[in-house]
């Protein structure tokens, strides 16, 4: 089974940092606006920030440890989730299209994500974040090829919906 590139933790951590920062600032102002609270606004905001960041960091750590995927013969297998462990099996036959995406931070770190779309209502888009750029292109290309190859020759059973 394949793991994500370890640098993806940096992206997730950055996201949780931004989230905690926003929450901290909001709490600071909220406490500032209400007079009846005994703590100073900066302490309250700082505490919220630190706690959220700690929880976020723990989550990132566990999330990275839980993430794995495998490009199998007929299916794409993905396992992820900290609180809810989710294992998804996507038959290539069901793949509608495959995207390779690279956000600005991902680009800085030389990473990329692959997003697989099916017609399903729930697992409609399955994304694999944090792959080395080269590997992301590889995976996209492989999935694309496999999706086309797996198309049944006749009948409309292969029709997506």
């Amino acid at each position: 089974m394949e793991r994500l590139d370890s640098r993806v933790r940096f992206i997730w951590l950055l996201r949780s940092l931004v989230g905690s920062l926003v929450a901290g600032v909001v709490v600071t102002f909220a406490v500032g606006a209400v007079d009846r609270v005994a703590v100073t606004p900066v302490v309250a905001g700082g505490a919220v920030f630190v706690v959220l960041l700690a929880v976020g960091a723990l989550h990132v750590f566990l999330r990275y440890r839980a993430w794995r995927f495998e490009v199998r013969d007929d299916t794409l297998y993905i396992e992820r989730g900290v609180l809810v462990n989710v294992r998804t099996v996507v038959p290539y036959v069901r793949v509608q299209h495959v995207d390779a995406r690279r956000g600005p931070i991902e680009r800085l770190l030389g990473l990329g994500s692959v997003v697989v779309f099916t017609a399903g209502s729930r697992g409609a888009d399955v994304s694999i974040p944090g792959l080395v750029a080269q590997r992301a292109d590889d995976v996209q290309e492989t999935l694309r090829r496999l999706a086309i190859e797996s198309e049944p020759e006749s009948g409309d059973a292969g029709d997506a919906v």
């Binding site: 099916t118 697992g123 059973a157």
Partner: peptide, 13 residues
């Protein structure tokens, strides 16, 4: 079966 798109196993803590 021929309508199934994906199969998902879910397990909460």
């Amino acid at each position: 079966y021929h309508r199934i798109q994906t199969l998902i196993r879910r397990q909460t803590v």
